[in-house]
Design a protein around this nucleic acid. Structure first.
Lengths: 345, 345
DNA sequence: TTGTAGGCGTTATCAT
DNA sequence: ATGATAACGCCTACAA
């Protein structure tokens, strides 16, 4: 492939010339416009194929003022939940004739801002976002709202009120279920490792968890609670501190599965028996929780179902069907979660 | 967000009018063209910001005949290797001013074809592809070659000769290393579960593996070799057959980690001791191989390094630097692999 | 340093 | 059923 400068391609004008008809007719024929004779349509399509003509969506987008592209900003595609969400969303949007432009913020607020601007300039027809870990202000998305471009937040949604669509998991209930389950399994001294409270999902999981403990009269101990990015390294560091004292936890709620997995490894290293000495519950039902020994109890979030809701919302909004959608601005749609019991509880 | 029709936005013409200058000047000022006075540049940028002006990349792309977007077709983003590859590639392209349009073929040849067409119409400046499992003919990418649009295959590359860039892992060596390692660990009766041979990576792994056995005089047994999609279900089905007879394997090379993980689970269920009775080696060094018990020996493919090479190739090709690139058309670039020894061997 | 003008390829509108 | 025309917003010779 020698680097040659982009040879100008055949356009509909060229096809039109070759056939001795007008570009408008060619355009209509290719777009299956009804007011064109079957004969012409066939003739045009054949000629176009013969000439290697390809539709130019840049020109088409400019003319139509719509790109048929939807932007997606996600913290990281390597997170199980998001990978599955994306796959499902992409399939549905593809079917509806939209392309999905997938971008990763890498959990950086700055990158998120840049991406928002880029996608705005790219004139995406809609934007779907799951926020970075420390995003609190969402002013970088205001342009979309001002222009009436559909904006959908999912999973990690803004904590402030917004005029965008909001589709989230029932993280409060997830936290509640986790707490209830640990207590019902007999835990008296429960620890908690959470993500930062700047992030909606951890706020809610924490609320639910605390409410559960309160309901059962089990103390929520500040000194056994950690809020930090949920990496393996941070998990080990917190676990070491948790198990450094005389009194040690007999239950742990890890707000993500990476942390729960680290906890299982930690317990093994320390000779802490699971579930006898320590019960562990994670969050997201990452496939890894099922293959590790012992398999980890976790909270399922149904990424595919959430993708369904997001797709439905998008397509409704883009087709201006408006109120027929089940999701409306200002009222978050909350998707169910379930506890999946395995061997750590 | 009430569905309102897209309000027409301010263009450079509007900004120009507001300032009483020509659109050309505005365009140049915004693009930091050198031949514009500092004063004007500042005035223009301020006014543009004030008016909420946003660059329209559709118009710009049409005019410039380049989209600054690079297309990517990948079998599935949920595969560890690809997720890491993408993250790394995206970061580098972003830095270089390109957007990445990530698409999944879902291992379907038909979807792959559709995506190729869509991305062609979208006028991506370059295309990066890892092929679907059963893609043998690659004619659907010919348009890119004809138009001189840089085309890069990576990982799962065409088995036929092509004029595109080819960047692949050293799968032959991976297969060789796997075979050598099993034999050196004492295996006499080795089984093999591979992906379909339509796919370059499995072809090569198989070749390497067979060459290793041959070198050591260990028989390669057709009846202990399976070629199929490497899913959990298929793995179990093959494993059951492998261990149904009187003589059973003492070593298994699984051509991906999902299969190796399934084998560990299978062995546990059957009470087969690992590594005493059965040694297992996987492929890709998926993080899951490290957390499972026993941790699985695997072949590391260095997705980030491969992404580096792909990014370098792309940027070179896009900037017409031509021959200064270390990667040239017609000669596949082969990236190193390494064996990571763990507890299953 | 700035302005003028034409065109990138497509499609909607208005005419025939 | 088809054609002529203009416009989407931007950029860049070329002119001043």
């Amino acid at each position: 492939m020698t680097p040659k400068k982009p040879k100008s391609e055949n356009s509909i004008v060229d096809v039109a010339k070759a056939l001795g008809i007008s570009p408008a007719t060619v355009s209509r024929a290719l777009n299956n416009n009804s007011r064109i004779s079957e004969a012409t349509r066939t003739r045009v399509k054949e000629k176009a194929a013969e000439m290697g003509y390809r539709h130019n969506s840049m020109a088409s987008s400019l003319r139509n003022r719509r790109s048929n592209t939807i932007g997606l900003i996600v913290p990281r595609i390597s997170m199980y939940f998001h990978a599955f969400f994306i796959t499902s969303l992409q399939r549905q949007l593809q079917t509806a004739g939209y392309n999905l432009m997938i971008c990763q913020s890498n959990d950086s607020v700055d990158v998120e801002k840049e991406l928002a601007n880029t996608l705005y300039s790219a004139r995406v027809d809609a934007l779907v976002v799951s926020l970075a870990l420390y995003t609190e202000h969402i002013g970088h998305f205001d342009g979309f709202l001002r222009q009436g471009i559909p904006l959908v937040f999912y999973d990690r949604v803004p904590t402030l009120r917004t005029q965008a669509y909001v589709i989230k998991g029932d993280d409060y209930r997830g936290g509640l279920l986790a707490g209830n389950h640990l207590i019902q399994a007999g835990c008296k001294r429960v620890a908690y490792i959470s993500g930062p409270l700047s992030c909606s999902i951890y706020q809610e999981r924490t609320r639910g968890f605390i409410d559960s403990l309160t309901k059962y009269g089990v103390p929520f101990r500040e000194e056994w609670t950690y809020y930090h990015e949920l990496t393996v390294e941070n998990a080990w560091s917190s676990l070491r501190r948790l198990f450094a004292g005389d009194v040690i936890p007999d239950g742990l709620f890890a707000a993500n599965d990476t942390t729960a997995i680290a906890a299982v490894a930690f317990a093994r290293e320390r000779g802490i028996r699971i579930p006898e000495d320590l019960k562990i519950i994670g969050y997201s039902n990452d496939p890894r929780t099922a293959i590790i020994t012992p398999a980890i109890t976790s909270i399922e979030q149904y990424p595919n179902e959430m993708a369904d809701k997001v797709a439905e919302t998008l397509i409704n909004a883009l087709q201006h069907r408006g109120p027929s959608s089940s999701i409306v601005v200002g009222e978050p749609l909350v998707c169910p979660v379930d506890l999946v019991r395995r061997m750590t509880t």
